[in-house]
């Protein structure tokens, strides 16, 4: 768990973490916002169901995989937080069957 330095700007972006409302700062990653919101565990592993949490915060460990707006296996430490994001901790392997169909960007 992390706390914000008192001098940092107020967190103004609203998002949800596992259905719970929380706020984050513009410009921060999903992983940073989760840590500041008191998240300790962000997923369980596909192999043994072990609890895991962000580990490296720089895109190399892939421990911070979460479901963002219905899409699984997103690297929370590399994705910027945006207003209204629905972030869910991921239970085991990504469930693609439940994911919304998206059109590929041009």
């Amino acid at each position: 768990m992390f706390r914000r330095l008192p001098e940092s700007d107020t967190a103004t972006l609203r998002f949800k973490i596992d259905g719970r409302p929380a706020t984050g700062r513009a410009g921060e990653s999903v992983a940073a916002a989760m840590l500041a919101a008191g998240v300790v565990t962000c997923r369980t592993t596909p192999i043994g169901g072990q609890k895991r949490a962000p580990y490296c915060l720089m895109g190399v460990c892939f421990e911070c995989l979460v479901t963002i707006d219905g899409i699984g296996n997103r690297q929370a430490c590399l994705i910027p937080l945006t207003e209204g994001m629905d972030i869910r901790s991921q239970d085991g392997a990504r469930d693609m069957a439940g994911e919304p169909v998206t059109e590929a960007a041009p």
Binding site: R4, E7, S29, A32, L35, A36, Y55, L57, M58
Partner: peptide
């Protein structure tokens, strides 16, 4: 390094 990134980029301790 992760804690350092959280501090540098996000002012998180």
């Amino acid at each position: 390094g992760a804690a350092q990134i959280a501090l540098k980029a996000n002012a998180l301790v």
